[in-house]
Design a protein around this nucleic acid. Sequence first.
DNA 1: CCTCAGGTAAACCGATCGGTTTCCAATCCG
DNA 2: CGGATTGGAAACCGATCGGTTTACCTGAGG
Lengths: 189, 189
Amino acid sequence: MTTEAKPSSRERLLEAAATLTYRDGVGIGVDALCKAAGVSKKSLYQLFGSKDELLAASLKEGAAAFVASLLPPADDGRSPRERILHVFEQVEVQAGVPGFRGCRYLAVQIELKDRRHPASRVARRIKRNLLSYFRAEAEQGGADDPDLLARQLIVVFDGVNARAGIGVDNLKGLIAPTVATLLDAADMR
Amino acid sequence: MTTEAKPSSRERLLEAAATLTYRDGVGIGVDALCKAAGVSKKSLYQLFGSKDELLAASLKEGAAAFVASLLPPADDGRSPRERILHVFEQVEVQAGVPGFRGCRYLAVQIELKDRRHPASRVARRIKRNLLSYFRAEAEQGGADDPDLLARQLIVVFDGVNARAGIGVDNLKGLIAPTVATLLDAADMR
DNA sequence: CCTCAGGTAAACCGATCGGTTTCCAATCCG
DNA sequence: CGGATTGGAAACCGATCGGTTTACCTGAGG
């Protein structure tokens, strides 16, 4: 086991924000966040300045784990096609674990109608990076129109995440054939 | 012009609820709703019993317009393929009008984390009807796997609505080729 | 004319919102 | 050990939440 005694107040706040906003939405109150983190409101406002900034920091903090949970390890010898399929296999796996509620970054952007909200900006950046990943793989894989394919893939990504997140589809037998069809149509074998 | 003098309190409340929750989210306050509708809170609670029921009634009320804005007229001689493509052409059109924020039913389901919320139930039912429409057309069009195709189509529907709704894609040149690819793959010519 | 039903405006309710401040105990460092 | 710093608990702030109630006004019916 790691020799981690206890996470700092800052880490506990980020973790509580990630957990509670994912489950209850960005409307969660700061009292609830502080109570869950075992941290005083005073500390919250010293560390982050506002609830909005805490949410933004929480999303940014989780970006690395988000990427790591989806993308294959770099230079693992697989083809771009396999690497794209790997991302969507991971989505299907994640959709099966209890408490799954779809892509948190999409949810934040939908809940925060204001696109200039700091957390909305962070979410947008993270998803733009995923789009860039798809486009890079599409280019490397020789897709007919890498830009179109990347946009199609992220539409499917958000679509399946949203559908599974609201509990209206379990995605079984849906993702792989859909993505494969789009890859085939782009002549990315 | 129609001889409509002034909509009833009930109608004005439903309209205000539709407009304000779409723009600001379901967290909008009842004071704001009443003020926009020019109706007292007393009347709101007499007519609908609670804010939750008003939201649910507002979604239900708008279902017919939602369907009419997307689906082609019945028995217009077009093929199932054309009828499905028509739906997505309408989405692209709607995504171009100012104030577009994606599918309101998806947004409501994402914002209301509680699936048992009356408005969430209504939204789910309306989207299930759209899924059924896709499936019926897929069957009639002789798709290889009508159920799979219908699920793919509604994933794309929610995906493009969400992406355009949060303002990260204008959908130009994206929808038609994507849907056509899925229809082709299902051998629905 | 009077009455009565319906509806609005506004006060009111307790709870909670995001955010600030006060107080006190634990900890750290010389 | 003494003094300074940290951070948690909780009171406090004005605003707003969903919801109820009161008081007044207006229009229709007898």
